[in-house]
């Protein structure tokens, strides 16, 4: 069987340029993981349902298992590794997921973080129902989504500068677990 040879592709991921050489059949997810070394993007189903592989392509959430790397030539891709502000400061969505126990095994987490961060950055005023609809794009098997919703709402408040957003890192006072989101 003749396999079409690899083709050069230039990807811009989290602000860095990656010149990689991939077969056309290489999905963006596999290129990120294996050619760019960015293994934070996970593969949970490879048919577009679970959403663990969700990344932002030119600012829009997309399933990186349903896109070929060659199609992302020249595009700007943002993955979970690119969300944090720097080595000491998490993105507000990451911070809120930490404080509100929005993860357990963590396998789905990168997809939820990119999805939520991308959406909140574009839609700061989204209501809870709208956010739940967005979050329904991805599957989580551990959390029952309770704390993912709670964390996303808290992140929204923090990103909008609401002092009740609870991002000061003083999480020991967060004893109000199991109740309704603040």
């Amino acid at each position: 069987m003749s396999i079409p040879s690899a083709v050069p592709v230039r990807l811009y991921v989290n602000g860095d340029r990656y010149d990689v050489s991939v077969e056309p059949r290489r999905t963006l997810a596999d290129a990120l993981r294996e050619d760019c070394g960015l293994t934070g993007t996970h593969l949970g189903c490879e048919h577009g349902v679970c959403g663990a592989c969700t990344v932002l392509v030119d600012g829009q959430p997309m399933r990186s298992c349903l896109m070929f790397a060659v199609q992302a030539e020249g595009s700007s891709v943002r993955t979970v590794e690119g969300l944090a502000i720097d080595d000491t400061t998490l993105h507000p969505v990451q911070q809120a997921f930490w404080e509100h126990h929005g993860l357990q095994c963590g396998f789905c987490t990168p997809g939820f973080l990119t999805l939520a961060a991308g959406y909140l950055e574009e839609h700061p005023d989204a209501g809870e129902a709208e956010l739940r609809d967005v979050l329904s794009s991805n599957l989580c098997r551990c959390t029952g989504y309770q704390n993912i919703v709670k964390a996303t709402l808290a992140a929204q408040q923090a990103m909008n500068g609401d002092p009740d957003g609870d991002t000061d890192g003083d999480t020991d006072t967060d004893a109000d677990v199991g109740g309704e989101p603040a």
């Binding site: 577009g48 959403g51 829009q60 959430p61 399933r63 349903l66 999805l115 609809d133 794009s137 991805n138």
Partner: peptide
């Protein structure tokens, strides 16, 4: 589908 499907 869902948002990440509708974007594409």
């Amino acid at each position: 589908g869902h948002l990440p499907i509708r974007t594409r």
